[in-house]
């Protein structure tokens, strides 16, 4: 992360904690000079718009707008912004689901940078297999290229059983087949692709199949959400980084008897919440991740 950006984030967020993770090892297939340009994107996750639980987050309606304002206030805007799922909090009422999706879309429509990528979480998509979500945001899995990096979104939530499914795995294979083995590949997904803690349903049923497809590629990094906290894990040479939430933090895997949101602490409001900047330092073949909490206005 460039110093000027870090200062900006520190100023906006009030606090800052940095994690630098080497996500790419080796980078022998450099493209054109333009394609090698360093850039950064912002990852926001698990905003759970519509959640109501004052004990957990008394500012449930204010946290997302604060994050939008913080991103907008950056002097240097990110190349793009990605939301890695659970845009809305689940509801059994299809109409209410659409109302929450519409409100979420309106709020993030205030982002200064219009280049925003979305993907669903199980709260958005698992009760109707992504139907309502797709009405607002389109395909639940897709790929795109940006400045020499191939980005792939993997949907492991539209199936309520948390499977990617054979059809999408075939699509993923075909997509990857078009990439060089040295290509720089970033995967966005919601649930962890590995068995982080299946005792709390922190896994993807057939995630190992996706990891197997990715394994031949030497420069792969996965960014995901779902677990409402930072977590860093390697499966072989593939790095997996989970993001904080923007509604409530969850305890570390297996650290307490029951998985329940961590209660709001008035002495430390917004503790455990935040978003991250990911700086693609392509010349160094590294991604630097910096985590920033949310602070009240």
């Amino acid at each position: 992360m460039h110093e000027i950006d870090r200062r900006d984030f520190l100023k906006l967020a009030g606090l800052g904690g940095a994690v630098f993770a080497s996500g790419l090892a080796g980078c022998s297939a450099m493209g054109s000079k333009a394609a090698q340009e360093d850039f950064y994107f912002v990852q926001l996750s698990d905003t759970h718009w519509g959640f109501n639980g004052p004990v957990v987050n008394p500012d449930a309606k204010g946290t997302l707008p604060k994050a939008v304002a913080a991103v907008n206030s950056l002097d240097r805007q990110p190349d793009f912004i990605v939301f890695t799922g659970d845009l809305t909090h689940t509801t059994d009422d299809p109409q209410e689901r659409r109302r929450r999706l519409a409100e979420f879309k309106q709020i993030v429509g205030a982002l200064k940078n219009p280049n925003v990528r979305f993907m669903p979480g199980e709260h958005d998509a698992s009760l109707d297999r992504g139907q309502a979500w797709s009405e607002f945001f389109g395909e639940t899995h897709y790929s795109f290229d940006h400045k020499g990096v191939h980005f792939v979104t993997v949907d492991n939530v539209s199936d309520p059983a948390a499977r990617i499914g054979e059809a999408q795995l075939a699509w993923l294979k075909a997509d990857l087949d078009r990439q060089d083995k040295d290509a720089r590949i970033v995967v966005f997904t919601h649930r962890p692709l590995f068995d982080l803690y299946p005792q709390w349903d922190w896994a993807t049923r057939d995630g190992a199949s996706a990891v197997e497809l990715l394994m031949p590629y030497r420069n792969v990094t996965v960014f995901y959400g779902h677990i409402h906290q930072e977590h860093h894990h390697m499966t072989g040479h593939i790095a997996h980084h989970s993001a904080k939430s923007l509604i409530f933090p969850l305890p570390a895997p297996g650290s307490v008897p029951k998985r329940e949101p961590i209660r709001w602490n008035p002495a430390e409001p917004y503790r455990g919440l935040g978003f991250r900047e990911v700086d693609a330092e392509l010349q160094q073949a590294q991604y630097s991740i910096t985590e920033f909490p949310i602070k009240g206005a």
Binding site: D92, E122, V157, P160, A161, P198, Q199, D201, R205
Partner: peptide, 18 residues
């Protein structure tokens, strides 16, 4: 003591089903 969970998303409250 070992956890078990519902691993098919079944609605608002699913995450407490263990």
């Amino acid at each position: 003591s070992f956890d078990f969970v519902c691993d098919i998303f079944c609605g608002d409250g699913h995450e407490g089903m263990s």
